[in-house]
Design a protein around this nucleic acid. Structure first.
Length: 110
DNA sequence: CTCTTGACTGAGG
DNA sequence: GCCTCAGCCAAGA
């Protein structure tokens, strides 16, 4: 599962699938968890390709809790609808109570 | 091999 | 708090 043969994208997908229902994390947090703290942009790039795969990409937002990837989902508001369906409140693309809902992949190891 | 493309981030003003 | 800029680097062409 965590083979070295997995591409960076595939590793990102594995971590994204660990995000609990109703919680969110950031591109940077996932990158850090993978030991590639400076590859946050790559995480977002990977999410762009997660379209067809079984990955909860809507639970990944930027460090401020903004839904920066919403334009990559179908329709004009699908990403927000998905997170809100999990109980996450969003106002102007900003996740409310972001500090409380933020899930750090690194905590998963503790 | 080189070059471009970014769903990012931290620092500086 | 805001905005801008530069560094970041995997993948695909």
């Amino acid at each position: 599962m965590h083979s070295e043969t997995l591409s960076f994208f595939e590793k990102v997908y594995e971590v994204a699938r660990l995000i609990p229902y109703g919680r969110v994390t950031s591109y940077g947090a996932i990158a850090k968890y993978l030991g590639a703290a400076r590859s946050a942009r790559m995480v977002g790039y990977a999410m762009n390709s997660s379209h067809t795969k079984d990955v909860p990409a809507h639970r990944v937002v930027n460090r401020k809790g903004l839904l920066t990837g919403k334009h990559h989902f179908e329709g004009t508001n699908l990403m927000q609808q998905l997170v809100e369906s999990e109980g996450v409140r969003v106002v102007n693309n900003q996740v409310q109570d972001f500090d409380k809902l933020f899930w750090d992949p690194s905590e998963h190891l503790l």
